[in-house]
Design a protein around this nucleic acid. Structure first.
Lengths: 255, 255
DNA sequence: GATATTGTTCCGGTAATCCCGGAATCCGTC
DNA sequence: GACGGATTCCGGGATTACCGGAACAATATC
């Protein structure tokens, strides 16, 4: 029997449960048959999954449509709270967003992908491109490269092997050696840049939070290239992110 | 065989899965044996649950400790996005927090409990008392009462039957008739107040967002009683929340 | 408004799986 | 290096997840 999730653990019903949950997530709101189509689970079986999810109050059935309940919001908050830096980072993000006027992100690495955990919008910033909890490849933006630059070499290789280096734009780094070279450079200069590598017309500058050799995440400033250019992009923003990540490092160390 | 979750759905393994997830949530970080103690599941069985959760990348095993992964953050974001007002409410919350200097909340009702979904902190505000996704009884604070006041009478009764009216402080309304009376008054005046009913020494003012007879949530302003008193608490804040919820209503209607 | 169609809920038998005891292995500690 | 504790692995037996199909409900069609 084929299985979309491969050998991801012995308990089939748990795997299927998350198939169901993710199907509802993807569809936002959906009826039983819609979810059945999405997952390939027989309607009578799916009915039991949905009934149970409703019983534990993790999904909500309104009229005939199912949607995710706010208990997932609670789990999300709990999940974030355990991550060492989430509490510390927020005020720094807000100040940086205010000072620069651009959108600022706090990003971590998990299972080889980047995850956006916090966000602060400056007055100039356009509406958010990513959502909190959203995943992204690491090789195609400043924050991801900043993190990769400080992961052990074997982990970087494993991540590349698992997720590849897919081209998001024509500027995306798609060669392993090119990437490793750039990571070297990022380590040297203490910050990373993204020039239309993830999304055409957008740029970013990022610096990692490294404490005792371990990366805990990265702070990024991003915006449209018509604002992020020249000295502002090459000098000013790199200095600002680096000084903020340094402050966070010290805050974390002495508190 | 006894079951903590009662008749909450036919699929036992799904119920147990959420027992495991919630145990990890409660413990924040925990080893296999700690989770086994918390849930009462045999270690060999639990091992399979954790293995599967790790396989689908919803938990993270570091060293010997398990914790919730950020996929729950993603699900939380998705869950919030489906709720009709989340997108709309944020800028209004921020403005209200700035204007009043106090902490401001957006609250909804789900399964008979209040859930805090958004939050904005004014410069005067102390650190947040609730967390995003956190649940609370509805009868003991302004936002909850504002919502209850606009739910159908039979739903209100059902909620009281299910969750009771537990006393959180000596000011908490613990009598059904007293509560119903106050809800009546809240409907009349268009806002609700909380005077040390949830937490000693804190007050709040709240107004519901009602569109075509349906409550979609409530906005609350909360703070310590030494700041929330007199005309500010009795006149100014009620006017401010009401005007904001009214704006949100109109924003929602014509957009 | 009656009928057709589509979607949901219920039921029961069976194959699969979850489940736990116990053994083996790993890890930290004395 | 031996001990104790925790984790991982294994196997068989009991439970339950699973799906077909029937009953029922809701919606669409004429």
């Amino acid at each position: 029997m084929e299985d979309t999730r491969g050998d991801s653990g012995p308990l089939k019903s748990v795997r299927r449960l998350f198939d169901v949950v993710e199907a509802i997530e993807a569809l936002q709101e959906a009826t039983l048959t819609e979810i059945a189509d999405e997952t390939g689970i027989a309607t009578s079986t799916l009915y039991e999954y949905l009934k149970t999810l409703e019983g534990v109050q993790y999904i909500i059935k309104e009229d005939r449509e199912y949607r995710l309940g706010s208990k997932f919001v609670r789990l999300g908050t709990s999940s974030k709270q355990v991550i060492p830096l989430t509490g510390v980072v927020t005020p720094y993000l807000e100040r940086l967003a205010e000072d620069t006027g651009e959108t600022v992100w706090f990003l971590i690495e998990e299972y080889g992908l980047g995850v956006y955990l916090e966000h602060a919008a400056g007055d100039q910033s356009i509406k958010t491109a990513h959502s909190i909890g959203g995943q992204s490849h690491l090789h195609c933006h400043a924050g991801g490269k900043a993190i990769l630059a400080h992961l052990p070499a074997d982990r970087v290789n494993k991540i590349i092997n698992t997720h590849g280096l897919p081209a998001m734009t024509e500027n995306t780094i798609t060669s392993r050696s090119r990437l490793l070279e750039e990571l070297e450079q990022i380590r040297d200069q203490g910050y990373a840049q993204n020039d239309s590598e993830q999304l055409e017309g957008t740029r970013a500058v990022s610096s990692p939070i490294v404490i005792e050799g371990e990366v805990f995440g990265a702070i990024s400033i991003g915006g449209p290239e018509h604002r992020l250019h020249g000295e502002w992009f090459e000098e000013e923003l790199p200095n600002q992110v680096r000084s903020v990540t340094n402050e966070i490092r010290l805050d974390r160390l002495y508190s």
